[in-house]
């Protein structure tokens, strides 16, 4: 690039973006690494090394957040990948009213999480709720979806899958549409059936789309706060407390240093899960 061309792409065009992004996102994020190691009252701080982190691992009510967050992130990811792929294959087949069905499946993704959370809490009501009434008609006694500590986290995850499967589906549809048709034609000529076309063509060739769905769903799941807060508030007990909700609870009770340490661990968690998968995805794309 010669000098006159460089002049026409001036670096000062980056200044407004850099100013806002650094001040309101990068600066507080890097500050968190320092304040996570302090006893902090906003006006004053005392450096206490790793005590906050140690406390996070020692106290069962805090430690449960790691376990819950992992369970939540991987179960919602699994649900979205499997259901999204099946829905996408179905919506790419020769049925009528495809676009209508596609819109119906996708629309919940645009709704407010709080609204969806409240609606599903009402439907999961142990005695009056629609889900248990429907199960009652079939002769099954429905569980107390949000009141039973053993399944409450799973109930929230199911709601998340309901809301998020539409995004997974449209990404898979984009991936499947990009597969050249002649692969399917070749398989047909060789006498392959529908199952073979799914396992030998659709599944391997929609890998880039699947990687995208996996990474988006995992990041979304690890960061989740709204849905849990709207549906259970972390309860019963601490059974649905995720890292993000624990961080908020610590902040609300005035443990600012502890909350910040939790935030740092949330970053590390997301980075540990997301970056390797992201790099893997990039490498794969080069290979293709």
């Amino acid at each position: 690039m010669n000098n006159s061309m460089k002049k026409i792409y001036p670096l000062y065009f980056l200044i407004p973006a850099a100013l806002i992004y650094c001040t309101f996102f990068l600066l507080p994020t890097s500050m968190a690494f320092f304040y996570g190691m302090t006893w902090w009252t906003l006006d004053d701080w005392e450096f206490i090394w790793f005590d906050n982190y140690i406390q996070f691992f020692k106290e069962p009510s805090l430690r449960i957040g790691f376990q819950n967050t992992l369970i939540y992130a991987f179960s919602t990811m699994g649900g979205k990948v499997i259901l999204g792929l099946l829905l996408a294959v179905f919506l790419c087949s020769k049925i009528r009213n495809k676009s209508l069905l596609r819109s119906v499946v996708f629309f919940p993704a645009l709704l407010s999480t709080i609204a969806v959370g409240f609606t599903f809490s009402a439907m999961m009501h142990p005695t009056n709720g629609l889900i248990n009434k429907a199960l009652g008609i079939l002769g099954i006694e429905g569980p107390n979806w949000l009141g039973n500590p053993k399944i409450a986290l799973l109930s929230v995850a199911l709601t998340d899958i309901w809301k998020g499967v539409g995004i997974a589906t449209v990404i898979f549809i984009a991936g499947i549409m990009a597969i050249p048709k002649h692969y399917y034609e070749a398989l047909k000529i060789d006498g392959g059936n529908a199952l073979q076309s799914f396992f030998h063509i659709t599944l391997p060739l929609s890998r880039p789309a699947m990687n995208t769905v996996i990474i988006l769903a995992l990041i979304g799941g690890l960061r989740t706060f709204d849905l849990v807060w709207a549906m259970t508030g972390g309860g019963p007990g601490f059974s649905t407390d995720l890292l993000a909700s624990i961080v908020y609870k610590q902040y609300a009770s005035g443990f600012f240093g502890l909350a910040t340490a939790g935030n740092v661990m949330l970053f590390v968690f997301v980075a540990l899960v997301a970056f390797p998968i992201f790099r893997f995805l990039n490498r794969k794309e080069v290979d293709l």
Partner: peptide, 14 residues
């Protein structure tokens, strides 16, 4: 910025 959620307390402090 795509992956990491914002920090609560340092952002409020700032």
């Amino acid at each position: 910025g795509l992956m990491i959620p914002p920090t609560i307390v340092p952002t409020i402090w700032l």
